[in-house]
Structures are given as structure tokens and as C-alpha cells.
Amino acid sequence: MSFYTFMGALEQGFAYALMALGVYLTFRVLDFPDLTVDGSLPLGAAVSATWITTGGDPYVSIALGVVAGMVAGWVTAFLATKLKILHLLASILTMIALYSVNLRVMGRPNITLLTEPTVFAPLEGRGLPNHILYPLVFAAVVLVCGVLLWWFLHTELGLALRATGDNPAMITAQGVNTTFTVMLGLALSNGLVALSGALVAQSQGSADVGMGVGTIVAGLASVILGEALVGDGSVGRALVGVVLGSVVYRLAIATALSVRFGDLALTPSDLNLITAVLVVVALGVPGLRSKLLRRRAVA
């Protein structure tokens, strides 16, 4: 792997770590498998890119993208809590709907931002080459968001949110409306995912309606890798793990793409299969192992 590829993987790792933090918030903290992210990531990108191409400020475009993502998360939470639709299905419905919404927002399947002003533009040309600057910017954003998330999860509201995922009966008995905490959690999560999408669009110079495919799987892979690497003993550890997991995941993919097995070389189009297999192994192996151990113990 070349230094450029390495820095590229690092940039992606940090960029999508924001998304992975969102997935951690729903999947692990709230115990709500939320597939909305496949739609809210391109939504953030679409809103941001559209705002910029119509002459808007790139910073404002990110704020708008985040708000749009939060609304998307709220919609999924509404379907699941108020209309009692199974959480997984509720999120799939929002995700599907967002595909149309994203096309409407952009007015076409993709928008190029190469000649437009982005939040990265003012930082460019100040001595640091882009392949070093971009990963640094993303790392800084991840650091800020990670610290904010850690702080929030230790506030009164944050404790209520964590307890909602851990034990809804208990937190209800303590006077908390779980409908509210689920809505809050999903809005925050999808806000982070949309932020990730908006920043990715601005850094890679385009927003595409298909850029969200497989987001949830990549997010899960990061969360699970993080748990394997640093454990999930506390919120702080888990958050560090998620970021680390995201970076390791992108590095692993970059590595996989650079190896050849005889005539067979992996292409980016194989990534979803690889990631899916990775997640299946990570989710399935612990269960299989304990089953095997039990069987051995019996024999």
C-alpha cells in the first residue's frame, strides 16, 4: 500500500467514523437497529451539495444537512414508537423513501462540487498537501463530535437515553418517556450520519444518490471491530473503539484491494460482499463458539 493510499484510507476512516458514531448510538446504546443511515448519509450530502451549488454558504449547508438527517431519524422513530411499526422495518421504510427524497433534493442523481467553495477550501494551500490536510480535518471533527457525544451520554438526559436501550421497563418506571428518548437518539444518530455524508461530499467533490448503499453494514463493521479492539467496558472506551474500528476497517479494505490472488484481484464492487461476510463472522462467531464449547463440555 502506498503512502497516498494509506492517507486516503485514514481520511475515509475518520470521515465515516462520524457515521459509525451514529450507528453506535442506535445499534448499541439504544438497541435499535436503524437502517435509516443508508438514506440519511446521502441526504446530508444531497442537502449540502444542493445548497452550495445554488450559491449558499458551505458551513450553513452542513448545518442544513445535519438538520435534514435529524428529521429523517425522527421520522423512523415516529414510525417505530407512535405507529408501532417494527423498528427494523420502520427504518427500511424511511431509507427507501429517502432515495426519492434525495433525488428530489438534488434534482438529478449526482452533483459535482469540484469548482464550488467547500469548508475545506479556506484550509487548502497553506503548506499542507491535501492528502495530509483532509485526514487531519476529519480527525479534528471526529474528536470534537466524539467528546461532545461522550459528554452528552453522561448528562441526565444521556443517562436516560442509555437506560432506554438497556432496560425500557426500568427507565419508564423512573418517569422517562421512552418515545421521547428514542426520538432524540435517532435524531442525534442520523444527524451525525448526515454530517458525515455532507463532509464526505465536500471532500470528494461530489454528492451521489447511490453513495449511501451499505452504510449500515460499514457502520456495524466499525462498531464491532472497535469492540474487538478496545472492548466496550465504558462509554469512553466504546467511543474510542468505534473511531478506531472505522479507521481499521478502511485500512483493511484498502489492503484487501491492493492484494492479488493469482488472476483474481478484488475491486471496489466486491466491498459490500466482503464487509457483509466480515460482519456475519463478527456477529456469528461468538454464538457459534459458545455452542461448540458447550457441546464439548457435554461430551
Binding site: L157, A160, N167, M170
Partner: peptide, 30 residues
């Protein structure tokens, strides 16, 4: 197992209960 949140610490569980019936905001939980 139903009365406490297993993944949270003893002090976090107690802090949640200490705010029962009060508004929960962005102040420190514990």
C-alpha cells in the same frame, strides 16, 4: 434484572432514580 440497567454503573442507576419526576436536562448525570 428488571429494575436496574445492567450496562450502567451503580452510581448512574441511582442518579437516574434520584431524578425521578424531575426534568432531565444537560446537567451532569452524576
Amino acid at each position: 434484572l428488571k429494575g436496574t440497567a445492567a450496562s450502567m454503573t451503580i452510581e448512574e442507576n441511582l442518579a437516574i432514580a434520584a431524578r425521578r419526576g424531575l426534568r432531565r436536562g444537560l446537567a451532569r448525570g452524576v
